[in-house]
Simulated scan of single mutants.
Amino acid sequence: KEEAQKRIADTVRLMGLEQHASKSIGALSGGQQQRALLGRAIISHPRVLVLDEPLSYVDKIFEQYIYDLVAQLSESTTILLVSHEMSTIAGMANRHLIIDHTLHECHSSHHHVHYDCDDCQAQSE
């Protein structure tokens, strides 16, 4: 129980929610809810983490924090990140799958992703 309490406290601190720890999730703002849900997703140190629109509702400061956190997590966790904002999340990924009626997998040495990248391979559905 002591270890669980420590892990919870560490995660609350990591998400910057110390001042809101006693509130129910429904009492939090949209950005705070997003932080709480991200904390819930990472508290168990998963081997695979699926993040669907993780930058929704968060402010620019916490957005940058998520970039750094994803980079740190990716050292020990496989992360599948889903977003409509390719330009925003492109720097967070080392592999890109673009789905727009067909599936394109882009491999590039840089993080500038565009729909017709030279290295894209279209795959049929």
Score class of each variant (00 low, 15 high):
V70M: 02
A4P: 06
H20Y: 12
V50Q: 07
D116T: 11
L28I: 03
R13G: 09
T88E: 14
D119M: 10
H84R: 07
L51H: 00
T78F: 08
E105S: 07
S124H: 14
S76W: 04
K1T: 14
C117V: 04
D119G: 13
Q64S: 15
Y57L: 10
I66V: 07
M92N: 01
V113F: 09
E105T: 01
L55H: 05
I61F: 13
Q5G: 08
A41G: 04
I79W: 01
D68T: 12
E53R: 08
A41C: 04
I61M: 14
F62E: 01
E85P: 05
K23E: 12
L38E: 01
F62Y: 08
H114Y: 14
E53F: 06
L37C: 13
Y115D: 10
S108H: 06
V113D: 04
L49G: 01
E105H: 01
I25R: 12
V48R: 07
A4T: 15
D116M: 11
Q32F: 02
A36P: 02
R47Y: 13
S124F: 09
K60V: 15
G16C: 04
F62M: 05
H20W: 08
H107V: 11
K1L: 14
A36M: 08
Q64L: 15
D119E: 12
L17I: 05
R95E: 11
A9M: 09
D119Q: 15
D118S: 11
S124E: 14
L49N: 01
C120Q: 09
G91L: 02
S124T: 13
A21I: 15
S108T: 07
M15W: 02
